[in-house]
Write a protein that binds this DNA or RNA. Structure first.
Lengths: 221, 221
DNA sequence: ACGGTATTCCATAGATTTTTGGAGGATGCA
DNA sequence: TGCATCCTCCAAAAATCTATGGAATACCGT
């Protein structure tokens, strides 16, 4: 029948991963790391956390095996341990969105009204290969640099208003950002629409693109 | 940029699912529920928990949306909320097995030595359709009754020694149980081998079979 | 209505986690 | 060597979670 104590111990070990996923702060850090490796100070700033708090949460993620560290001189770069971790994060998000009643209103409050048109990955590929649309990456520059959809142009959301002329006025724009729960592409499409551009939003984002096995580009622009 | 408070709130809501996965006891209950619906008293007995402890853990799982309840007269039946939850549980297990160093030794201590031959689902289907093997479900009877691999014969592990004559001596046996971390099929194959039978083990179990989209049978035998 | 069964609710003590600030290590550069 | 930067370690207080046993609730059969 198997020893009860050994079984308890095994499940307690599995729960270490669960515990790591049991904090909003840590999930936020994980979500950022899913876009690419980053330093502790960087992550703390973007996630609006005290440095020591961020450090201790990152170490909790590391103890659970979800992230790895690499030293680059004086800075330490945290990175997702692998695609399986990204898949786990996505699975958790999907369960939460479907099963936790309060997630929908919380998402709506964060993302804003549903006033923007969305398309899926297949439709994006169709429009791009037909030449009727260009793909716009509105994530912060370091995340674009880490990896992005091939052919996408990078204009971070907070620079978009000032760099509008870089986008041909007669082209439709498909904007994307981190993932389904990222606000940047919503705001970008609203901004573009307000300036009279034709713009739609990829329904999810880079995380889902990558996990679906699509190719990605790194570096350059 | 999106309101910081709204973002924090959203991730805190997502973390409710993570928190639910952050306890060995709850994972054990989830693992049982992945085999089929069960009552509170039943779950408490199988998971070796006090009734009130089991009840409160089950309610925690319910608040996180991972399980649902149905009243049947005086008993309350808990069930997994859906396949997406089973997939999440499997994803967590796979990440833990790959990334948490202490999971392997804990699994080895629970499952015993690697002295049994294992085959995958494709090989099982091959041997069954070739008529060279029969499939043996060694889970407790209620789990077999809830759902099982089509054509499988049910002999719970603790009855196996006494019901050996029900298995044709010249047939190879493929034993399976709940999943990759379930000990029953390991013990069953050891027992059969000790009695001179040819027996191998499905590398994972019913959970993975079902999630892979294979058909399942319910009721009868 | 009554007794019996299955489960949840409640209060509490004990354990674990989270946050924060200050001190300490490691690395790079002048 | 000395100094700056980036990060981790440590300790303590606050907050949260867990286990447990007794009481309360819901439903069933008589």
């Amino acid at each position: 029948m198997g020893d009860g104590a050994a079984k308890t111990e095994l499940f307690e070990q599995l729960a270490r991963v669960g515990k790591a996923l049991g904090s909003g702060k840590r999930l936020e850090l994980l979500d950022l790391l899913a876009q690419g490796p980053r330093s502790v100070a960087d992550l703390a700033a973007v996630a609006r956390l005290e440095l020591t708090t961020a450090s201790s949460h990152l170490q909790a993620l590391k103890r659970a095996g979800l992230v790895t560290t690499t030293r680059h001189g004086t800075t330490i770069e945290y990175a997702l341990a692998g695609d399986d971790v990204a898949a786990l994060w996505l699975a958790l998000r999907e369960v939460a969105a479907r099963r936790v009643a309060d997630v929908r209103p919380a998402a709506a409050a964060y993302l804003g009204p549903e006033d923007t048109e969305e398309i899926d990955r297949a439709e994006l590929l169709r429009r791009v290969s037909a030449g009727t649309a260009i793909v716009l990456d509105v994530r912060p520059a370091p995340e674009y640099a880490a990896a992005h959809i091939p052919g996408a142009v990078s204009i971070p959301l907070d620079e978009l208003a000032g760099r509008l002329e870089e986008i041909p006025a007669d082209q439709e724009v498909v904007a994307y950002c981190r993932g389904a729960l990222c606000v940047f592409s919503h705001d970008a499409v609203r901004l573009l629409a307000a300036r009279g551009r034709r713009a739609v939003r990829l329904v999810d984002g880079f995380l889902e693109w990558q996990l679906a096995g699509h190719p990605v580009d790194v570096h350059d622009r």
